[in-house]
Design a binder for these strands. Sequence first.
DNA 1: CGTGAATGTGACTTCATGGTCACGTGTGCA
DNA 2: TGCACACGTGACCATGAAGTCACATTCACG
Lengths: 217, 217
Amino acid sequence: MWADAIPGRDEQQALKRKAIVRAAARLMSRRGSHGATLDDVADRLGVSKAALYRYVSNKNDLILACHEEALAIAERCLDHGEEKGATGLEKIRLGLRSYLVEMIRELGVPALILEENVLQGDAAERNYANRDTYEQRMRRLVAEGQRDGSIVQSEPKIAVFMLLGSIHWLAKWYCPDGDWQPEQVADAIVELATRALEPSPAERLSAELHAGAGTGP
Amino acid sequence: MWADAIPGRDEQQALKRKAIVRAAARLMSRRGSHGATLDDVADRLGVSKAALYRYVSNKNDLILACHEEALAIAERCLDHGEEKGATGLEKIRLGLRSYLVEMIRELGVPALILEENVLQGDAAERNYANRDTYEQRMRRLVAEGQRDGSIVQSEPKIAVFMLLGSIHWLAKWYCPDGDWQPEQVADAIVELATRALEPSPAERLSAELHAGAGTGP
DNA sequence: CGTGAATGTGACTTCATGGTCACGTGTGCA
DNA sequence: TGCACACGTGACCATGAAGTCACATTCACG
């Protein structure tokens, strides 16, 4: 019937939960996890707080869902970067750029990431695990870039922290209602931050020599 | 009691208030402004919560004081940078490096900065004003570096946001009990982040030409 | 000593907010 | 038609934390 154009009951549930998570993420981005109350989230969706509990077991669960949504976006964008980019540096650039744009579009601004310490119990550990796998993936990309000569030699951990810091700090200053467009600002930030990873000509030369000069012209 | 912060008699009040601010800053750095309760702060100092109210009018006031302390450190470190550094880039490097070191030493880790949105009323505006003057000072240094050729041409606002993001993100991952020493990690982060501002040899050359080549050998 | 100001305390109030529950309503299905 | 179930609601409870207050204690000083 209806050629499956009408979402089923359980699909509706999933959609509603997603709407809750999105609304919550937006609010928390602005006011922080503590500052955004469940009443706020409910109001934003035009329902009562009690209704939320049909789709979310508690606030911790909701916050965790927000973080997982954000990290899912990040991973998806890294997929894109790894697919399209040639060098380690390019993959990182593409991945971070689309991450920022998507983040601004979908969740307002990625301020959730700024305060993950509010999670308690299992949720906290699960979230740390998620974040760690993402960071490790980033580090592997840095190492790849160091091998292919697109990234300067340095401690990958530090490099990744530096990049993520530059990116997420956006939450502190970017105003979605301002003049700057998401793509524009994402470009500018990512371009500048990843400049830090670019090897100088001299460094690139020595890297090529060290690699056997097999890739030179 | 009072964690051994009681020399003079008349200055006692000021010192005690300072001790409160420091303790609060440390706790808030770890657990966030909301997560750190006044009871926690009092416990840490070995007094009761009620005693705090002799030196602090309310929690907002306390949070504001923490931010002002942090910004005061930042300004002081920029003074140092401006005094010792020759170029715009050097001033920024020195300023940020000592800021990070001092911050880790004094206030644990500068996580307060991550959540200034919790301030309410006058305190919020005053804090934003403080922060703005600091950021403007940083921007002026970037512009100076662009004039003297030590910093690549780019939007100073973006550059400053990128730097501050890299720096403050430290709060997310640096563990004071870990292996890395404050100076070591401050050096690494600042060195890498400011690399992004360095002009490439070609850019430097064109900058010198544009400036009339008056400073070349 | 004696006195008043300063300081610290425990016990209290107040309030915001997370979380629960019994109930009314609409909807799909036999 | 009527049943069962999902859904949403307003009213409610529990709790943690901010903030207050009367009182005890200590200290400077005449």
